[in-house]
Write a protein that binds this DNA or RNA. Structure first.
Length: 580
RNA sequence: GCCCACAUAGCUCAGUCGGUAGAGCACAUUCUUGGUAAGAAUGGGGUCAUCGGUUCGAAUCCGAUUGUGGGCUCCA
C-alpha cells in the first residue's frame, strides 16, 4: 500500500516539476521576446508545453537558444513565490495579456493565484517546486502550431514542447525510448521490409500492399474468415459506390457528408464512394421477409471505405483515406441484444489475444451534439453497453459526447509492445439504420417488429491494424504471420539442387519458403535473411545433403543443433498452427 | 485545413561562398564456391519534387504548387 502512495507522490512530483519547467520556458521566451503574449503551459504525459503568441515564427534553431536561457534560469535557482490576488488586481497585472484576461474572466472565484519566478509572473493555480534549481534535467523537443483553446476559429499560437526529469539519466532513457520507437515506426519498417507503399503519385492516404504485405494480409484475412464462420457469422461482399438516394435513406448525406467525397456522375445520376458498408447490409436484410427465427443475423465484410480526412491528419497506415474495415452488422431482437453485445466483446478480446496484445482500455462514448434518436433510446442503449462492460468485469472510462450520430459505442484502445495506445475496436449501437431502412422481422405473434442493430469493427481497420502489428512486433512477425517463414541457404552452388527439393517439400506442407540461390557467400545470405527478419534460416551444405538433415538458425541468432529434416518440419508446422 | 520543417539515384544520405552531380547499399555483368551478420572488380542509373522569378550562371537565393514529417482539431 505504501508503495502505491509513494508512486502517486512521485508521479505528481514529476508533474509539478514539469509544470515549473514550462514556467521557466515562458520566462526564457519572455527574455527573448519582451512582447510575447502567453497562452497556457501545462504538464502533459511525457513532459510539458507552453503556447505563445510571438512577433515572428520560431524555427528549430531557436530551441537551443531558449534552452540555454532556461539553463541560466535554472542555475540561478530562483524561488517560485505564490500569491492570491483579486480578479481586479489580476486584470491590471495582465492588462497586456489578452489570453490571460480571457482565462481570468472564466475563473469562478473572486481570487486568483499567481506564481512568480525571476521576472516572470503567471496566472497559475500551482503547485510548483520551491525554486528553479529543482528542475534537474530538461530538453525542448519541438515546436508546433496549436490553436488557442484547440479551436481553429481562434488564433494559432506557437507551442514549444519539452520534457523534464528528476535526473539526466532518466531524461537520457526517455530519449532512448523515443529512438527505439522510431526504429519500429511502421512507415520505416514498411519500406525496409517491402510490405506496403504510399507513393506520391496516387495521392495522400492511399496505400498499395506489395507481395510481402499482401501475404500477411492474406494470412490474416483467412484466419479472420475462419474465426467469423466459427462464431456464427456470414460474409457479405458489397460495391464501393452507391446511388445518392441510398445515402439519403441511410442519413449519411445529412450527418456524415463532411467525411464523404464529391459525387460521381454516371448517366446523369449521382453516386457516392462508400464511407461505410452499412447501407448495403441493410438492403441485403430487406431483400426478403425475415422471421424472428432467422435472428440474430451476423453479417461481416472486409469492406473498403473511403472517407475524407484533412491532409494534415494523414499518418502512414494509421490514418488514411481509403481503408478496409473488418466490419459486421448484427441484427437481432431486443431480447438478444445483451448476449450479442457480450459475445462481440468476448470475440474481440479473443482476437486481440491471438495477435499478441494483452492490454487494452475500454471507453464508453455517449450522445454527441449532432445526433438522431430520442433521449430514451440513447439512455437505453447506453445502459445496455454499460451492462455488458460490467458483466465482463471490465474497467471503463466515459467519453461524454463521443458517440457517433446514430448511437453510443464502446471503443477499445489497445496497448502495444512499447506501451502506446491505439483506438482500434469499435462496437456501436445503431438505432438509426433499422429505422431509416424500415427493417422489420415477423415475431412469434405474427406481427412486425423493429430489430436492433450492432455495428462493429473488431480490429478496426485492416490498415491501422497492420500498422500497429508492424510496430508491435518491430517487423519481426511470429512464424504464422511472417511473409517468408523459412529461408533456405545453400552453402555453395552444388547444394542448390538439394535446397530446391527442400523448398518443394516445405511448400507442399504450406510453409512459406524461399531459396537464396544467388552465387553469394553464405554469410551474406544469412545477413540478408536476418535483416529481412525471416524467422528461420535453413543452411544446407555437404553434411546436410549427405544425411538429409538441416542446420537451423533463428533470426534471434540462436543456432539449433543439426537435426533430421522431418523433426524440424514437425516443430515448425506445430509452431505455425499454434500461432505463437 | 492551419503553424513549422523537409523534398538530391530504387533506398539511406553528402553536396561549403551560386560556377553545371557524389558515396554506400540495391541492380546488371564477370571472377570467386565460401559453414552461421557484408568476398572482389566493372558497369548502368539523376530535367536535384513541379512551375515561375532573381542572376552571366541556380540542387544552392526568392515565390507558388504538390507531397512528406512534427503538432492543433477530428478519427477506424
Amino acid at each position: 500500500m505504501a508503495d502505491i502512495i509513494n508512486l502517486v507522490n512521485a508521479e505528481s512530483k514529476l508533474e509539478t516539476m514539469r509544470h515549473s519547467a514550462s514556467h521557466v520556458l515562458a520566462e526564457a521566451v519572455l527574455s527573448i521576446f519582451p512582447d510575447a503574449k502567453f497562452g497556457i503551459g501545462p504538464a502533459i504525459e511525457d513532459g510539458f508545453y507552453y503556447d505563445f503568441d510571438l512577433p515572428r515564427s520560431l524555427t528549430p534553431d531557436d530551441l537551443p537558444v531558449i534552452e540555454e536561457k532556461m539553463g541560466e534560469i535554472i542555475k540561478a535557482d530562483l524561488p517560485f513565490t505564490h500569491k492570491e490576488i483579486t480578479k481586479a488586481e489580476a486584470k491590471k497585472l495582465f492588462a497586456s495579456q489578452p489570453y490571460k484576461l480571457e482565462l481570468i474572466d472564466e475563473i469562478p472565484d473572486d481570487k486568483v493565484g499567481i506564481y512568480e519566478q525571476g521576472g516572470f509572473v503567471d496566472l497559475c493555480r500551482g503547485p510548483h517546486v520551491n525554486s528553479t534549481g529543482e528542475i534537474k534535467a530538461f530538453k525542448l523537443s519541438n515546436i508546433a502550431g496549436a490553436y488557442w483553446r484547440g479551436n481553429e476559429r481562434f488564433p494559432m499560437l506557437q507551442r514549444i514542447y519539452g520534457t523534464a526529469f528528476t535526473s539526466q539519466k532518466e531524461l537520457d532513457e526517455h530519449l532512448t525510448r523515443i529512438e527505439e520507437a522510431k526504429k519500429r515506426d511502421h512507415r520505416k519498417l514498411g519500406k525496409e521490409l517491402d510490405l506496403f507503399l504510399t507513393p506520391d503519385e496516387i495521392g495522400g492516404g492511399l496505400v498499395i500492399y506489395t507481395p510481402k504485405g499482401g501475404r500477411i494480409r492474406a494470412v490474416i484475412e483467412e484466419f479472420w474468415r475462419q474465426e467469423h464462420f466459427a462464431n456464427g457469422y456470414e460474409i457479405l461482399y458489397t460495391p464501393h459506390i452507391g446511388l445518392s438516394k441510398l445515402w439519403e435513406t441511410s442519413g449519411h448525406l445529412d450527418f456524415y457528408q463532411e467525411n464523404m467525397y464529391s459525387p460521381i456522375d454516371i448517366e446523369g445520376q449521382e453516386y457516392y464512394l462508400k464511407p461505410m458498408n452499412c447501407p448495403f447490409h441493410m438492403l441485403a436484410y430487406k431483400s426478403r421477409t425475415r422471421s424472428y427465427r432467422d435472428l440474430p443475423l451476423r453479417w461481416a465484410e472486409l469492406g473498403t471505405v473511403y472517407r475524407y480526412e484533412r491532409s494534415g491528419v494523414l499518418l502512414g497506415l494509421l490514418r488514411v483515406r481509403g481503408f478496409t474495415q473488418d466490419d459486421a452488422h448484427i441484427i437481432c431482437t431486443p431480447e438478444q441484444m445483451n448476449s450479442e453485445l457480450s459475445e462481440v466483446l468476448r470475440f474481440s478480446l479473443h482476437m486481440w489475444r491471438v495477435f499478441g496484445f494483452q492490454k487494452y482500455r475500454v471507453f464508453l462514448s455517449t450522445r454527441p451534439e449532432k445526433s438522431i434518436g430520442t433521449d430514451q433510446m440513447w439512455q437505453d442503449a447506453e445502459n445496455a453497453l454499460r451492462r455488458v462492460i460490467d458483466e465482463n468485469e471490465l474497467e471503463y472510462e466515459v467519453d461524454e459526447g463521443g458517440g457517433v450520430f446514430y448511437g453510443p459505442k464502446i471503443d477499445l484502445k489497445i496497448e502495444d509492445a512499447i506501451k502506446r495506445e491505439w483506438q482500434m475496436t469499435t462496437i456501436q449501437f445503431d438505432f438509426n439504420l433499422p429505422e431509416r431502412f424500415d427493417l422489420v422481422y415477423i415475431g412469434a405473434d405474427g406481427q412486425e417488429h423493429r430489430p436492433y442493430m450492432i455495428h462493429r469493427a473488431l480490429l478496426g481497420s485492416w490498415d491501422r491494424f497492420f500498422g500497429l502489428l508492424i510496430e508491435h512486433y518491430a517487423g519481426a512477425f511470429p512464424a504464422w504471420l511472417a511473409p517468408v517463414q523459412v529461408n533456405v541457404i545453400p552453402v555453395a552452388d552444388r547444394h542448390l539442387e538439394h535446397a530446391r527439393k527442400l523448398e518443394k517439400e516445405m511448400r507442399n506442407l504450406g510453409i512459406r519458403v524461399e531459396v537464396d540461390d544467388r552465387s553469394e557467400r553464405m554469410n551474406l545470405k544469412i545477413r540478408q535473411a536476418q535483416l529481412d527478419k525471416i524467422p528461420y534460416m535453413v543452411i544446407i551444405g555437404d553434411k546436410e545433403v549427405a544425411d538429409n538433415s538441416v542446420s537451423v538458425r533463428r533470426r534471434s541468432g540462436e543456432q539449433l543443433p543439426t537435426q533430421p529434416l522431418a523433426g524440424f518440419l514437425e516443430t515448425l508446422t506445430k509452431e505455425i498452427a499454434d500461432k505463437v
